[in-house]
Amino acid sequence: MFTLKSRLPNSLVGADPDVIIQAAKALSSDRSTTATLLGLLQSERRVETRQGLLYALCWHGDLGTWDVMVHILADPREAPQVRGQAAEGLSYLFMSVRTDSPEFDGAVHALREALNDPSPEVRYCAVNALGSTGHPPLIPVLQEMRGDRTPIPGWVGTVSEEASRAIEALEGLHRMRLKNGR
């Protein structure tokens, strides 16, 4: 098992992609590492490491990562897999954010922009995240994405198929939002 003090710096920011993945998975369940991971994210530039850091942060459920995720998603200098991971991170947090908040609006804006990204991976992840909003006004946007039949290399499915799943998820999450008053 990886421990923060002895293994994190060498494992998560090392050069071995398999070790980065193992470290990210181990740290994904340790919410006490959020601040450390955010600090590493500020200085680390390697794509695999940035993606691993974001992966671990996604599972912390910490709204303090919201702005970081939005910023990374919207930054065209970031690698597609890093931007896709940021979109995934937002998808896990949407149910904790009110739909009438500026945070919600900013994230939705960045995700809608990502729907035009040249990378099918980014589009796929953005579609998924929009489905996690539970916000019915986004259904037409997702319906439009049903026309994007681009497969994602190494993944199962297309952007179009994910858009169909996202619409179903959005509708179910909307019912939850109504029930919870969000």
Rank of each mutant, 00 (worst) to 15 (best):
I152V: 15
C125I: 00
S6Q: 14
W155A: 13
S6N: 15
M69W: 05
V122N: 04
L40D: 06
P151T: 03
A114M: 07
P153W: 02
D62F: 07
Q22F: 01
G39I: 10
V70D: 02
L57A: 10
I72K: 05
P137K: 11
H71S: 14
A169W: 10
Q143V: 11
E48N: 12
A15P: 05
C58Y: 00
K5D: 15
A56M: 05
Y92V: 01
S101A: 14
V13W: 08
P136Y: 08
R165G: 00
A79E: 15
L73W: 02
G84T: 02
A23C: 13
D75E: 11
F104W: 07
V19S: 02
H135I: 07
G61C: 01
M95L: 14
G64N: 13
A24D: 04
R123M: 06
G147I: 00
H109K: 14
E168S: 10
L73T: 07
D100A: 11
E144C: 00
L37D: 02
P136G: 05
D67C: 00
R123N: 02
P118S: 06
R7T: 10
A163K: 08
V47Y: 01
A107M: 06
H135G: 04
L173M: 12
A129L: 11
E168P: 01
N116A: 11
E121M: 14
A74Y: 03
F2G: 01
G172K: 15
D18P: 00
L8E: 11
E144L: 09
R182P: 00
I21P: 00
A23F: 07
N116S: 09
S11Y: 06
S91F: 04
A35P: 02
A129C: 12
P76A: 11
L115K: 03
M145D: 01
V97Y: 06
P136D: 06
P102W: 05
G134N: 02
E171A: 11
E78T: 08
P140R: 09
R46F: 05
D105T: 15
D18L: 12
G39A: 12
L63M: 08
W66N: 05
A114N: 04
L73E: 03
G147F: 03
K5P: 04
G64P: 07
G154H: 08
D75R: 05
S91W: 01
A126D: 02
V127G: 04
T99Y: 06
R175T: 03
P17W: 04
V159L: 08
T49I: 12
S43A: 15
G181D: 05
H60F: 05
F94E: 08
R149L: 10
A56Q: 05
L4E: 14
K179W: 10
A166P: 04
I20N: 09
M176L: 15
V68N: 05
F104D: 09
H174T: 03
P137V: 08
H71Q: 14
A87L: 02
D105K: 14
N10H: 13
A166H: 09
S132E: 09
G131Q: 10
A79N: 14
S164F: 01
K5G: 08
V127N: 03
A114G: 08
I72M: 09
G172S: 12
E121F: 11
R149G: 10
T150Q: 12
G172N: 10
R31S: 09
E44D: 10
W59G: 04
E171G: 00
A35T: 13
E162A: 09
P76D: 13
A169V: 12
V82S: 03
F2C: 10
N10F: 12
S6R: 15
P9F: 14
P153Y: 03
L54R: 05
R175A: 12
N128V: 01
